[in-house]
Nucleic acid binder design. Structure first.
Lengths: 293, 293
DNA sequence: CCTTATAGTTGACTACAGTCAACAATATGC
DNA sequence: GCATATTGTTGACTGTAGTCAACTATAAGG
């Protein structure tokens, strides 16, 4: 690797270290430890299992317990026993906690705006592209894509998220009963495969492929979590799904999608998929694609 | 400012915060506080005044004193009274300290290489460009360019650095006695100006302009510190010097330079300067440029 | 010479970050 | 029903970061 790339990157790291320090000062301005703010921010609005929160942030059980207690004392979160497991607890933000998280969000936005202020539109576009490139590069190492059992917990979670999202997006919702049924065995080797993408070990996306012998492969349930979009996850997922199709000897890859999923359409077209006529009558789809292998 | 730019940048900040944390862990692996490693790394090899070191790192006097003492106890630095001022002290790395700093450098290089590993050459080039763009953007806010007295301490320091650098670069050295003399008054309003660029308050570059009434303006002593190159400092400096020339009614801007200063030549040509014949006989120059205003 | 400013040291202190082990309550598998 | 594992709480502890004020030694200006 050229040494100058390493040097460029190190200068970048030095600058960024400084900037991150300033960012943390902003969080500290809220009169509580950075760890507590981070916890409040990271937990989101809905009820979260404390154990998953702890794991996500890499916190010690005792430490997390104390941080949560301090947030509870401030009246920002409510911690209650989990309905599923009386040992476990779930944390929820109180209205005050939501307000505070919103404020933290605004502070972060302001910090970002402060950095971006004073640049022209074309410079901003350049900075935007550069930030995306580096975000992708820095993330790549922590991203893994693995073949899993489509009935595993992570796979189910992804599919549930996917269905919930398109149900909210489509005017007439998404009704699994009307959709073409895909059984678990069809997405399990050797008849197919189901992949889950994980970022820092947390599932952030999925994709399935049916591999009927001698016929075109068929992609199903490609989804990327909103938090992980723009990182190129879908592209990597597509690479792997296509590689499986090639390995199985499939002559082509086909799929159906909906024009409301704009990013998906763009991805397929940029990867050489061409629109074809409806080949399966899937009621939730309005576009069908095919790519020869 | 478009909201999506803010969102892109915030995602970038989140990713980078994580990465910086990992970087600090590497430094901590050396068995001493991060602050001490940073101090050792930042002080460089030569003797440094403790006060300037403290200021550069933004450390409390008491805290810095203790960090230095701990490095001294480890045998990594030697702290002695300043020859100029018996109150002040200067710190120097011992051979062991230099070794340790080299090791820290290597750890940082390795960390950078770890991030960059696995990318193709074209991806690396893209990442390099993106890192440069963001480094520039993140730095811009902390960069100031001001008109100063050419005999002020910061101005003198920059000019000394500049002369030392070209003296080392030119085969026959740089001899101020042979060079065309430019008096301080020629670089002081209204006959001219001398600008110093500062990053986080520390001088990192300079540039002078002579503004003889009715004649072309003449640029002198454009220099950017090695540590601040690639940040666009020279470009901003040139903008301001040209603005002064325009304000004074100069019909053109001229300058001499040497082809060994390759970055300078590229900058001038990208800014619309065209090469012209020798117009002043400066012995250290081998190229002359002019730009009509 | 005297006043005032500056450089550094030291002691006392606070807050944050994080670890470890003991423990209570509850689940789970046999 | 009992051994074992899991979830969270609590107490005790360490190390890092950083602040503040008192103090000594030296400089610089009138």
């Amino acid at each position: 690797m050229p040494d100058r790339h390493v040097q460029t990157f190190r200068q970048f790291q030095r600058v960024v270290t400084r900037e991150v320090g300033a960012l943390q000062d902003d969080f500290l301005g809220r009169g509580r430890p950075f760890g507590a703010s981070r916890l409040l921010w990271e937990m989101g609005d809905g009820p979260v299992e404390v154990s998953s929160l702890r794991e996500r942030l890499g916190l010690d059980a005792g430490y997390a317990s104390r941080l949560l207690r301090s947030l509870e004392d401030e009246g920002l979160v409510a911690v209650r026993p989990s309905p599923d497991d009386a040992r476990a607890k779930v944390a929820t933000r109180t209205p005050a906690g939501t307000d505070e998280a919103t404020l933290l969000d605004r502070l972060s936005d302001d910090a970002a705006q402060g950095v971006l202020a004073g640049f022209s539109d074309s410079e901003l576009a350049e900075i935007d592209a550069a930030a995306r490139t580096l975000t992708r590069a820095l993330t790549r190492r922590h991203l893994s894509i693995e073949t899993v059992d489509p009935q595993s917990r992570d796979a189910q979670w992804c599919v549930d998220q996917f269905f919930a999202e398109i149900d909210a997006l489509f005017d007439s919702g998404y009704d699994p009963a009307k959709a073409i049924v895909v059984g678990a065995s069809e997405l399990t080797p050797p008849h197919g495969a189901f992949l889950v993408a994980r970022l820092h070990g947390q599932p952030v996306g999925c994709g399935g492929v049916k591999l009927p012998a001698g016929e075109p492969a068929f992609l199903k349930r490609m989804w990327v979590a909103p938090s992980a979009r723009g990182l190129g996850v879908a592209g990597l997922m597509l690479d792997q799904l296509e590689a499986l199709a090639v390995a199985s000897g499939a002559p082509a890859v086909t799929l159906d999608t909906n024009s409301l999923l704009t990013a998906a359409g763009q991805l397929y077209e940029s990867r050489g998929y061409r629109q074809v006529a409806d080949f399966n009558g899937e009621p939730h789809a309005d576009r069908w694609y095919r790519k020869e292998l």
